[in-house]
């Protein structure tokens, strides 16, 4: 996509060393000249979590695939602070939150083990604006060993993106799970 648009592309880049008025300098001596430097940073663990006995070597919390902290089944962990959440995306945090809900129901005697003990199978789910009324839709679990790899681009993914945005504001950011299922249905069955 980047190639087709003429966008330049640099991969396997080292740590960012510094930003200057003229661009970005990297730790291995490479640099990129730029007027606008649009950057996403390193995601690091919060100070109050990093030295806990349940934290990993970078301070993220270790869990099993039912989102219980290792050695402390009474602690549930979900979202970006969990070590298992890779990449750090909200879609996976959402999948983990549903698991936590089922585990709590299990412990409260409100759900049986068969239904509750469905472990995390992360799926990368992303709908990105491309401008000009178009968007891309990605749903894939291939990075984790699964078999799904879906990519759609065009005007319908853009409509999905806008619907998600409307749902986000309508639900005060508490988007229900059916939003993702609906997007999946529309992306796979309707176009």
């Amino acid at each position: 996509m980047a190639d087709g648009m003429g966008i330049h592309y640099r991969n396997k880049m080292a740590d960012i060393k510094r930003l200057t008025k003229d661009g970005i300098e990297f730790a291995d001596g490479q640099s990129i000249e730029a007027e606008l430097k649009l950057v996403l940073p390193d995601w690091i663990a919060h100070d109050c979590l990093r030295d806990l006995p349940i934290a990993d070597s970078a301070g993220f919390i270790k869990t099993d695939l039912l989102m219980r902290a290792l050695g402390h089944p009474e602690i549930f962990v979900l979202g970006d602070c969990a070590a298992v959440t890779v990449p750090k995306i909200g879609g996976i945090g959402h999948q983990e939150a549903e698991i936590v809900g089922r585990q709590v129901a299990l412990d409260m005697g409100r759900m049986d083990a068969d239904e509750a003990n469905e472990p995390l199978q992360p799926v990368v789910f992303c709908i990105g604006d491309m401008g000009e009324g178009k968007a891309y839709y990605v749903r894939s679990n291939a990075w984790f060993g699964g078999k799904d790899e879906v990519l759609k681009m065009g005007r319908i993914p853009y409509q999905l993106k806008m619907s998600y945005r409307n749902l986000f504001f309508m639900t005060h950011s508490k988007v229900r799970g059916f939003g993702l299922s609906l997007a999946q249905f529309a992306a796979l069955k309707v176009f």
Partner: peptide, 28 residues
């Protein structure tokens, strides 16, 4: 422009080692 867009390096810990979410898979 010219403009640049990208991510700083993420320094992931070892906390997802050994987890197998799909048969034969892993957390990368």
């Amino acid at each position: 422009g010219p403009d640049t867009i990208g991510s700083a390096r993420f320094h992931q810990g070892d906390g997802a080692e050994g987890l197998q979410p799909y048969p034969g898979g892993s957390i990368p």
